[in-house]
Computed example of a mutant assay.
Amino acid sequence: MQGNETERPVLTGVEGRAGIIRLNRPRALNALTPEMVRIAQGALTEYARDPAVSHIVLEGAGDRAFCAGGDIRYLVEKGKEQSGEAEAFWRDEYRLIHTLANYSKPVIALMDGIIMGGGAGLAMHVSHRIVTDNTRFAMPEVGIGFLPDVGATYRLARAQGETGRYLALTGETVGAADVIHAGLADHHIRAERLGEFRNALLAADASQLESVIEQYAEKPEPGLFETYEAQIEAVFRHDTVNDIVEALTHRSLEFSKRTLATILSRSPRSLLVTSELLRLGRTAPTLEDCLTREYHAACRCLSAPDYYEGVRAAVIDKDRNPKWSPATLAEAGAFDPEDIAPVPGVPDPVYS
């Protein structure tokens, strides 16, 4: 392993037959910084041409999180400065996600603990996606005036039933069974066996991965989606947020009432943008199409007040009382195509 655990924000090295990428900011829930993205991208380039590396193990340091997403304090700071560094971070992050999604060797993501936003982007596109009893998965962006990005509108639009639309428009947190049910993870390993499983992965080569996983995988306890799949399908099959809200208002189940209250607490602008990105994502021919469209929408958020207000309320002041602008879906009106249009002078991500 290169570097020591107090210095490098990503630890890399070859263990057995595996190339390791360990996100190493446990106190910050392994939130991604520009340096972390660059180190991970460099490691993947190196591992791709190393014949000693059979497969990649992608993991988070500590026992709390795989990765809680991008470092939003950094992004908000750079967005306010209008320095172009936030946009550059997203370009590099999306390129990293594209690399992982199209990697020449198997990638095993150990999705233990908290997985949110950019962390989900690192994990949900790879070849082998492992969750545990500790998994807490969310795409919470509509709650901070942002949008589900990192290729989420490609994956969530194709999730089982309407579970992806539920995750995107509520921002709610779900567990291992739900992530598998939605099609965003493949296998569940009991948390207490994760270390043992990891050791078996290191000793295996690519041809043995499936048998190793089969040896350790177990069915998780049923989750939210198994219980409420029919209700979610009935409500979230609608393409627009207003139609979803209307459908929820006519349902008497406590689950529907909670879901309605949650959606109405989110940024109206973010809800409209997210709903449109999901609609477009459902028929997008490639992940790259969605990444580029999400990038345009992300850059537009830097000039919209809700992103800064949402981060203030959730992360900085932590009063959990954002003042959205516009304040309600009725005031927001219809989706504005300008909200996902390219920003003049800002280059698109380049995937290679």
Rank of each mutant, 00 (worst) to 15 (best):
T153C: 11
T153K: 00
Y154E: 11
R155F: 00
A157E: 04
A157D: 06
A159H: 02
E162R: 07
T163C: 09
T163L: 10
G164Y: 00
G164I: 14
R165D: 00
Y166I: 00
L167P: 02
T170F: 04
G171F: 00
T173H: 11
T173F: 07
V174T: 09
V174Y: 09
G175W: 03
A177Q: 12
H181V: 01
A182P: 07
G183R: 13
A185W: 07
H188K: 06
I189K: 02
E192S: 12
G195E: 14
R198G: 10
N199F: 04
N199Q: 13
N199G: 14
A200S: 09
L202S: 12
L202H: 15
D205T: 15
A206C: 14
A206W: 15
Q208F: 15
Q215E: 12
A217Q: 15
A217V: 08
E218H: 08
K219P: 05
K219R: 13
E221L: 11
E221R: 09
P222L: 13
G223A: 12
F225Q: 04
F225L: 05
F225S: 07
F225M: 12
E226D: 11
E229R: 09
A230H: 13
Q231P: 02
Q231Y: 03
I232Y: 03
I232G: 00
V235Q: 01
D239F: 02
D239G: 14
D239M: 06
T240Q: 08
T240P: 03
V241F: 02
V241S: 06
N242Y: 01
N242D: 14
D243W: 01
I244E: 03
V245Q: 07
A247M: 05
L248M: 05
L248R: 00
H250S: 14
R251T: 15
S252G: 09
L253R: 12
L253V: 14
F255C: 07
F255L: 11
K257L: 06
K257R: 14
T259V: 11
T259Y: 01
T262D: 10
I263W: 05
L264I: 00
R266L: 01
S267K: 09
S267T: 06
P268S: 03
S270C: 05
S270N: 15
L271Q: 10
L271K: 02
V273Q: 06
E276K: 04
L277H: 01
R279M: 08
A284M: 06
